[in-house]
Design a protein around this nucleic acid. Structure first.
Lengths: 193, 193
DNA sequence: ATATAACTGACGAACGTTCGTTAAATTAGA
DNA sequence: TCTAATTTAACGAACGTTCGTCAGTTATAT
């Protein structure tokens, strides 16, 4: 109960200030208690951080898996663009994806190994799903190409650029323009014409 | 002279640990002196950081401008792919681009405004150059499209995804694969066929 | 001799963490 | 059901350490 509130505050400050920049006293103050009281719920700063990390991972993974299981996979144009919109939605609905992104690329040094493991775990799962779907679309001659790896990696690149735009600031116009441009060129690049 | 060595050490630790995670004593030890001696060269941590930031900005901007002034702009396939390779080279030659990337997206909170100004400054310059070149290529019917903004933003997206891959780790194979995939799809997406 | 750059020493503040204590909530036994 | 024992969650105080910073002093070099 209370530990959930602490984790929410921790998520916020870890996201804004990073691991080193976020202090337990800040987090505790946000919740309305003293920093010592955090130790009644967590073994220390690392423990708190890793629990926040694993929560964020679980949220992100389940969101993506749910999306892939929901779609019928017969219309790549709709399915893939919908996936990009899902990411935008995830980013704006909660802070977990932004936290995840920050820690994926700039982890606290003494926890980088543990973080890397979690990141690779998600990345491989998503990549495998996408590669499978692209292979089916190629076989069905819905999109062009011979190996599924090319559109998969290119699409992962579109996702990366979208996330960079999301984290960059909240210029909604610019986000929309860049997404539209990347998507237009990407789709033209993998579809028959 | 010595302040250059200090800035190099500072660049290293700011890049690895971020502003809050990097300490003056670490930096001084790397150089072989006491942290108090840094104050003979810089007014404080912020001053050191901002000078490192502006050095990184200058390096990045001049590298990119030099590239654009060097090419003949008659062969977009070669020019654009060459620009991507320039970025890889910049990333591996010095740490400044990685530092720049980290601080662009996750700046220390109390300096975020000053950093944002510098980032926008570079971004706008590069974007303007690219947009101009793309417009010329469109007019010469070398690439498809009606408005230059679309390929420009899409290419900026490819750059973003490339940088994410560069910062992600040093799996050279994966970097090569993702770059090749993104480039293949991007080029097919903007070229006649 | 003057200026520059390094040093030692010390400062207040903040950090994460541990301790012992208190008060409230929960459980156990009669 | 009433009481006693236990657990939980918060607290103030303090720990040792590190942080960035400043003042005064010594060494180096022009």
């Amino acid at each position: 109960m209370k530990s959930k509130v602490i984790k929410e505050a921790a998520l916020k400050f870890f996201t804004i200030h990073g691991y080193e920049g976020a202090s337990l006293s800040q987090i505790a103050e946000e919740v309305g208690m003293k920093k010592q009281s955090i130790y009644a719920h967590f073994k220390g700063k690392d423990d708190l951080f890793l629990q926040v990390l694993r929560d964020a991972k679980a949220t992100e993974l389940s969101s993506k898996l749910r999306y892939f299981s929901k779609i019928d996979s017969q219309n790549p144009e709709k399915d893939l663009y919908g996936f990009l919109q899902l990411i935008i939605e995830l980013f704006q609905k909660n802070e977990q994806l932004k936290f995840w992104l920050r820690m994926s690329f700039f982890p606290p040094a003494h926890l980088s190994k543990a973080i890397e493991r979690e990141v690779i775990d998600i990345d491989e799962k998503v990549q495998a799903i996408l590669e499978n779907k692209f292979q089916n679309w190629i076989n069905a001659k819905i999109i062009v190409g011979d190996v599924a790896k090319t559109p998969t990696f290119a699409f992962l690149g579109v996702i990366d650029s979208l996330m960079m735009e999301l984290v960059y600031g909240n210029d909604g116009k610019r986000l929309k323009d860049k997404l539209e441009a990347s998507w237009t060129v990407f789709w033209r690049g993998i579809s028959h014409q």
